[in-house]
Amino acid sequence: MIPAPAFLSNPERFMAFSRWAAPLFGLLAAGLGLAGLWLGFSAPEDYQQGDTIRVMFIHVPAAWLSLFAYMCLGGASFLSLIFRHALADAAARAAAPLGAAFTALALITGSLWGRPMWGTWWVWDARLTSVLVLFLFYLAYLALRSAMDDDAKSARAGAILALVGLVNLPIVHWSVTWWNSLHQGSSVFAKGGPAMPAVYLTPLLLMGLAYIAAFGSLWLVRIRGEVWRRRAEAAQARLAGA
């Protein structure tokens, strides 16, 4: 039997941890974000992209987080499905709106970069289309969860949908390798090291860390809300039976 992480196995321990961790991650995100923006707006214009290079400092981290949030959603859904653990389901449910928001940001900021650089807002390119499919998976998950009143049934159905959607993650990641794509290939995690100068790489990595810290903070806050919601509903049910 696979042991559930101790962190996820005890709501009391989680609430004690998240009480100080959520604001700490939030402060970390603000500090890293300010440093990243400062360096990003101090960097020289790119010789090809001009000032639109600055959109990369928010577009790329949003795209990373769209995948990372789905991995969190998938992992939590797996634990929820196997162990039927309420906190794992709360974590899955809390990750979905954040993932949807980061995916929407990746699509919108990418489009705002694409218009001046590619001459179009949108192309049915493998990378763009697979990210759109990822966004639709998030929306489908959110719609499914809000459509069912029974938490146990909703958790199971949502977890199955989330696990099916995991298939799309490698497609998103390798779409630029598998198909001829207008979207550029990986520049940061390229073979042989990052294919961009430090003057752009440093703010990009700082913004990436800021987005991860922001996701961590927002995720913990939302999981806490889910735990309170379940406690309120349990108390309501006990009061009704008293």
């Binding site: 000032d51 639109t52 577009h59 309170w228």
Partner: peptide, 27 residues
Amino acid sequence: YVWPAFGISALVFVALIWTGLGFARKW
């Protein structure tokens, strides 16, 4: 193109913080 990208990102972050804290506080 550059400023709307940053503006929309900032708005989304504000909305995520607002709704997340509001949801947790309410429950």
